[in-house]
């Protein structure tokens, strides 16, 4: 599996998508946070809320762009046959590709810690920034991205067209992130059902972790969704055997 990991990462960086998607992520969020109207310098509060509200929406588009090649391209070019006939199981292929994409997400994600340092430096007289909530939000954002990576890889495994993989990925990420919350807000869902529907979506757990309390239930939720999509991906990959 290390060989696969290395190959995935090196292939990713040999394409322009890597630099564009990572650049876009960093720049869009920086513009929004520091330059566009309503930015943090006008608001006079040392908080990264604006960043954490916008980031998931950027990720909905960005992560499927990172992951769209993973299986779609291999299936299109037939290299999946080359890969599958090496001494490696289908699950190892999926996990290897997932970990590689997760690593790419981590590399995209880490530079945003600069925003935190920037704001800390900018605050007057070293006024305290809500570190708990900020770190919670960072952890939440990382897990959110990790789920999107799993969703993106799954989308890539069900098609051999990268555009289709991208669009399905965006759709599923949106569905997972926001649709459940929107659904629960509909008037005919009330009380407990309302809450259950809301909890099925990523949004509720992301918000919960963002408050600065890292609840095991939220972590378990994220890990469960990741596992489900990895299993789904393996199933899609094995569908050639049906």
């Amino acid at each position: 599996m290390p060989a696969l990991l290395k190959k995935e990462i090196s292939l990713f960086f040999s394409s322009l998508i890597a630099y564009i998607s990572m650049g876009v992520f960093f720049i869009v969020l920086a513009l929004n946070l520091f330059i566009f109207s309503g930015n943090i310098l006008d608001a006079n509060y040392a908080t990264l809320d604006a960043f954490f509200t916008l980031a998931p929406w950027v990720l909905i588009f960005l992560i499927p762009a990172i992951t769209m090649r993973t299986f779609a391209e291999e299936k299109q070019n037939g290299t999946i046959e080359l890969l599958s006939t090496k001494p490696i199981t289908d699950l190892q292929i999926v996990v290897g590709k997932y970990l590689a994409a997760l690593f790419l997400w981590l590399i995209t994600f880490l530079p945003t810690l600069v925003y935190f340092l920037a704001i800390k430096k900018l605050s007057l007289d070293n006024a305290p920034i809500d570190s708990g909530a900020t770190w919670g939000s960072y952890i939440g954002l990382f897990f959110l991205g990790a789920v999107f990576v799993a969703v993106g890889i799954f989308s890539s495994s069900i098609s051999n067209n990268q555009i289709v993989a991208f669009l399905v990925g965006v759709f599923l990420c949106y569905l997972m992130y926001d649709a459940f919350a929107q659904l629960s807000a509909l008037p005919f869902f009330e009380g407990r059902i309302d809450y259950i529907i809301q909890s099925a979506g990523l949004n509720a757990h992301y918000d919960s972790i963002s408050r600065g309390v890292v609840d095991t239930r939220d972590i378990i939720y994220f890990l469960t969704i990741i596992t489900l999509f990895i299993i789904g991906t393996r199933t899609a990959l094995e569908s050639r055997k049906w």
């Binding site: 190959k7 090196s10 292939l11 040999s14 394409s15 070019n77 037939g78 290299t79 046959e81 080359l82």
Partner: peptide, 8 residues
């Protein structure tokens, strides 16, 4: 059809 990773 000899599939290969053309970017490698």
């Amino acid at each position: 059809n000899n599939p290969l990773y053309y970017d490698m």
